[in-house]
């Protein structure tokens, strides 16, 4: 059976090399994945080092130098009140990434916990079964709303602040993790080792925590990075319509929005540079998402390592 042989060979191959080496090989074979990590790392570094690197304060208006085009003095120009766009663009990841990561993690934790509970009890009857059913219908209702409108409504009702945006992002993402986790848990619930755990006398909660969740986390983890990118877009979108963070907090979406009105009169830079930064960062997260998907898929991963091994053998020959 050539297929079985090849698989065994690939696993053997993987076993011989360290994980890091495999990662590096994958990076060489799929350079776009590496690009994703580089972009995200750059965004994180820009945010972290902004106070050291930024030539100007990101929140200080300087009316004497409003709407200056890119120059040696202001690399990316200035906006309508004279704030330095470069300084603001590199400060922005502090807010955008923080909001997106916090919102996504919060939704992942809450969504996974509820999803695990619901999945565990979905096939059972009684009150718990009904409750699980109700939770799923509530998730249906939440997902039936256009995400953006739902987020705007949340921010409008809770008040405009960074915390609210985080909450809004977490809230609209919860159903995604809830569903992922539920479907995983429903499969795992039937496994012998779960039965064994229950027979051994562990409570439902402990069984879920010790044996079900750790085995069901894969798809949710793969979803994380894609979700972070998407949440950055949502954060920027909320700010663009004025429902996000408060001005003059450096944030890409609000920068695009406030610069947008100048585009029609020829001053493109206040809007275009934050727009580019936003697009590139989201692209970076999407590449990372693809790579995680690959790593999390044993079939694809096996195929890739097999290809890599074959290539190495060819080179050696």
């Amino acid at each position: 059976m050539p297929e079985a042989e090849a698989t065994t060979g690939a696993i053997a191959e993987t076993g011989r090399t360290s994980r890091l080496a495999t990662l590096l090989q994958v990076a060489r074979a799929r350079p776009r994945f590496a690009l994703g990590y580089v972009i995200v790392l750059a965004a994180v570094l820009a945010g972290a080092l902004a106070p050291l690197v930024a030539p100007y304060s990101p929140v200080e208006a300087n009316p004497a130098e409003f709407l200056q085009p890119p120059s040696a003095q202001h690399w990316l120009g200035t906006d309508a009140v004279g704030m330095d766009i470069f300084s603001r663009v590199i400060y922005a990841p502090r807010i955008d990434l923080a909001i997106a990561v916090a919102g996504t993690l919060l939704s992942a934790v809450v969504g996974c916990l509820i999803g695990a509970w619901v999945g565990y009890h979905s096939r059972g009857g009684g009150l718990r079964g009904w409750l699980a059913y109700l939770v799923m219908r509530a998730a249906d209702v939440m997902q039936a709303f256009p995400v953006f409108v739902f987020a705007i409504a949340l921010v409008a009702s809770l008040g405009q602040s960074v915390q609210t945006v985080v909450l809004a992002i977490a809230f609209v993402n919860i159903p995604i993790y809830l569903r992922l986790m539920r479907s995983q848990v429903m499969t795992i619930r039937e496994m012998r080792y779960v039965e064994a755990s229950l027979v051994a006398g562990l409570s439902d909660a402990r069984t879920i925590a010790r044996h079900v969740m750790p085995n069901a986390m894969g798809p949710a983890l793969a979803q994380l990075s894609v979700n972070v990118g998407w949440s950055i877009l949502l954060t920027a979108g909320l700010s663009f319509v004025g429902a996000g963070v408060r001005s003059p907090t450096p944030e890409w979406g609000s920068m695009i929005a406030s610069g947008f009105q100048n585009v029609v009169t020829g001053e493109w830079w206040p809007s275009v540079f934050p727009g580019l930064a936003l697009a590139v960062t989201v692209f970076g997260f999407s590449l990372i998402g693809s790579s995680v998907e690959l790593f999390a898929d044993p079939v694809k991963m096996r195929r890739l390592t097999r290809d890599l091994a074959a290539r190495r053998r060819e080179r050696a020959a």
Binding site: V59, E60, A61, N62, P63, A80, V81, M83, A156, Q160, G242, R246, S247, P248, S258, Q261
Partner: peptide, 28 residues
């Protein structure tokens, strides 16, 4: 009113110089 935000930003910077820290609140 699109002029109010830029005015508020300029005021915020100027007020900071006299020790008055104002937060900007954008209302629909």
């Amino acid at each position: 009113d699109p002029v109010q935000e830029p005015i508020a930003l300029i005021l915020q910077t100027s007020l900071r110089r006299i020790g008055v820290n104002v937060q900007l609140e954008k209302l629909p």
